[in-house]
């Protein structure tokens, strides 16, 4: 593998909130370590409440860490809001889920796209317009669209504009947080092909957060499966999808419908029972034990550590040794 661009070392994020005078703590991310390499696509999957988006935000410094450190190319990520952070944020961009609320409705598309270019002083004032037009062209939109306001566009077009805005500063890493879940399948395919093309043409890493397993398998080189803020399984996307080791990964893959009726009907479905536990008082030992069908006494007491089972596959489950 190539060079590490983001090195995440044992980070935890704890939310404290007051609810009717009682203080509650929620561990959104619990001791997560991982690396993101240059020009790879890294997928993050898990149910809602598993900490996917919090991890995505933490990766670019939008989320304050309770412990642990994140290094971008061997530089520790500065505190958000500081001048150093602002400078570094040029390299680290994020695209959010809902394109309708991520653009300012009072600004034209041209103004929205010009802002990051001006903030980071990327070109002279006279060249800003031509830079904006070339960005629009890069994501397949017409140059006359720069004059219009966000309300004149469809969801797919707005998401392209958000991609263009992220690309404006020539970043090294883009976090894509459920960027297609508000879109139709055909528009989703357009956005994914666009991202794939852009990645081919430049040195760019993507972190792709989604709960659509089909999509993640299609785009990601490596994937991370999360459950209640912990790493469940991490490794090469092809290996994990063809041979998932953790019971939770198996259940997730089993629950995702295959778009082919005969194969879908022939599958043996083993549904996951129960709900994701309350993050305020998570179960002892392995977090997944309340829904797991292979629980041992050991799972109640001991938190499983992340172990390597194959080249490019790491699992945190006590049963992987038994296999």
């Amino acid at each position: 593998m190539s060079e590490i661009i983001l090195d995440i070392k044992k980070i935890s994020v704890i939310f404290n909130k007051m609810f009717f005078g009682r203080s509650q703590t929620i561990k959104a991310i619990d001791n997560v370590s991982l690396q993101i390499f240059n020009s790879e696509t890294f997928g993050i999957v898990g149910e809602s409440g598993s900490g996917k988006s919090t991890l995505g935000n933490a990766m670019i410094g939008l989320q304050t860490l309770s412990s642990g450190e994140i290094f971008y190319k061997e530089i520790a990520l500065p505190l958000s809001g500081t001048k150093d952070w602002m400078r570094l944020r040029r390299q680290l961009q994020i695209i959010f889920q809902d394109p309708f609320t991520s653009l300012n409705p009072r600004r034209t598309i041209g103004q929205s796209l010009a802002e990051p270019i001006i903030t980071h002083n990327l070109c002279s004032k006279n060249d800003v317009t031509s830079k904006v037009l070339s960005l629009l062209d890069q994501v397949g939109l017409n140059s006359n669209m720069a004059e219009r306001y966000p309300n004149a566009f469809s969801g797919g077009q707005l998401q392209r504009i958000c991609i263009a805005r992220a690309l404006a500063v020539q970043p090294q890493l883009i976090i894509c947080d459920e960027i297609t879940s508000a879109l139709d399948v055909s528009t989703q395919a357009q956005i994914i092909s666009l991202l794939k093309d852009l990645k081919l043409n430049q040195d760019l890493s993507l972190v792709f957060i989604s709960h659509d397993l089909g999509l993640v398998r299609n785009i990601a080189d490596r994937i991370l499966v999360m459950y209640l803020g912990r790493i469940v399984e991490i490794g090469s996307s092809d290996i994990i999808f063809s041979d998932p080791k953790h019971p939770y990964t198996q259940a997730l893959i089993n629950a995702a419908p295959i778009p082919e009726p005969s194969r879908e009907a022939a599958r043996i479905k083993t549904p996951l029972f129960g709900e994701i536990p309350d993050p305020q008082n998570p179960p002892s030992g392995c977090f997944f034990r309340t829904r797991c069908n292979q629980v041992h006494d050991r799972c109640l007491i001991e938190t499983p550590a992340l172990k390597q089972v194959k080249k490019n596959q790491f699992v945190s489950c006590h049963h992987t040794e038994v296999h």
């Binding site: 399948v185 395919a189 092909s193 398998r217 999808f241």
Partner: peptide
């Protein structure tokens, strides 16, 4: 159908409309 991703198959070329 061509635009639908399949979780049981490795990477394919996406054909968008």
């Amino acid at each position: 159908l061509a635009a639908t991703p399949d979780p049981s198959k490795p990477k394919k070329v996406f054909n968008s409309i």
